[in-house]
Computed example of a mutant assay.
Amino acid sequence: MTEQISETGGITLCHESFGDPADPPLLLVMGLAAPMIWWDDEFCAQLAEAGFHVHRFDNRDVGRSGHGTGRANLPLAYVLRSAPYSLADLADDAANLLDALDIERAHLVGASMGGMIVQEFAIRYPHRVRTLTSIMSTTGARNVGLPSPRAALAMLAPGPRTREEYVTQLVRTSKLIGSPGYPFDEEHFRRRAERTYDRGLNPAGVFRHLAAILSARDRTADLRRLAVRALVIHGAADPLVHVSGGRATARALGADLDVVPGMGHDLPREVWPRVIAGIRRIAFANR
C-alpha cells in the first residue's frame, strides 16, 4: 500500500490500492474537500478481504492531487450553474485514472459528493461500470437532499489558520454531521484531521468543490436511463444530505435502498459490515 502519482488528462492524481490485482477492481470516490484517507485504511482492507482490488484517490483540489484553477463564486454557481469545473469533469478525472491503471471496467462506490461523481461517471461511461454504490448522496434535484440550516452553516464556516484550529474545527464539524445512533470516536476523528492537514489543504479548492455541487444539473432523467446494478445507502439521521436525496437516487436508478437507522453523514465503524456486505451482494449477484 504505497501512494502513487499519475498524470491523467492534464490533472495529477494521487492514489493507492489494496488487495489482490487479480480480484475485480473497485474504485472509491470521496466527497467535498475530503482526501482519500477518509476511506479508512481498515475499511479498504476489509473490502479487499471481501474480494475486491480496491483503489482510492484524492480528487483534484484535495490532498496530494493537483489543484484546479479559477475562482469560485457560490451564488453565481447556484443561479447560473457556472463553476470553474463540474462534477462531470471530476467524473472524467476518475475515468482517466482507470485508464492510467489499465482498468476497463470497475465497481464504483462514492460517498456524498463522491456519490454524485460516480453517478456522473455512470451516465458518461456506462460501459465502464460493473456496479454502482451511491452513499449519503443525491441526484442534483434541488427539492431533495437538502441540508439542515445548522449543517449548511458549518460547511461555510471561516477557514482555520493553524493546524490545531483545523483539527478542532474538523472534529467539531464531524460530530455535528455524524451519526447520533453510534458512539462518536473523538480520537479517531482527531487523528484523521491531523493526517488530513499534514497531507495538504487547499482552501480555494473547497470552494471550487462547492461550486461544482451548487452548479450541478439534475441527473434524475439520465439516471433513469441507466441499466446498471446499483445500491443506495443513506443514513436516516443525515443532517447534511437529507435522506430524501438517497430515496430519490434509488428511485431514479431502480436501485436497492438501504436506509441505516441512526447513521448521519459519515460511516461509523459499526456499519462497515453492513455496507461491505451490500457492495459485495450486488457485485457478485450473478456468481
Rank of each mutant, 00 (worst) to 15 (best):
I5A: 11
S6N: 02
T8I: 15
T8M: 11
G10K: 06
G10I: 03
I11W: 02
P21C: 10
P21A: 12
P25S: 10
A33I: 02
M36H: 12
W38G: 01
D41M: 02
E42G: 13
F43D: 13
A45L: 12
A50R: 13
G51T: 13
F52M: 12
R60F: 09
R71T: 14
A72F: 06
P75C: 07
P75I: 06
L76P: 00
A77C: 08
A88G: 11
D89E: 13
D89C: 06
A91Q: 09
A95P: 01
L97K: 10
L97H: 07
L98K: 10
D99E: 14
D99M: 08
E104S: 14
E104A: 14
L108K: 09
V109Y: 12
M113C: 08
M116D: 03
A122D: 07
A122E: 05
Y125G: 01
P126A: 06
V129I: 04
I135H: 04
G140A: 07
R142L: 07
R142V: 02
N143E: 13
V144C: 10
L146P: 01
P147E: 06
P147N: 05
R150W: 00
A151P: 04
A152P: 00
A154C: 07
M155R: 09
A157Y: 00
G159D: 15
E165H: 05
Y166F: 15
L170E: 15
L170S: 15
V171L: 10
S174Y: 01
I177C: 06
P180H: 13
P180V: 11
E187K: 14
F189I: 02
R192C: 11
A193D: 11
E194K: 11
E194V: 13
G200H: 09
L210C: 08
A212P: 04
A212K: 07
I213M: 14
L214T: 03
S215H: 04
T220M: 02
L223I: 01
R225D: 08
L226P: 01
L226Y: 00
V228K: 04
I233L: 14
I233D: 00
V241W: 01
S244N: 04
S244V: 04
G246R: 03
T249N: 05
A250Y: 09
A250I: 09
A252V: 04
P261A: 04
M263W: 05
G264T: 08
H265K: 09
H265S: 09
D266I: 05
E270W: 02
V275A: 13
I276K: 11
I282W: 13
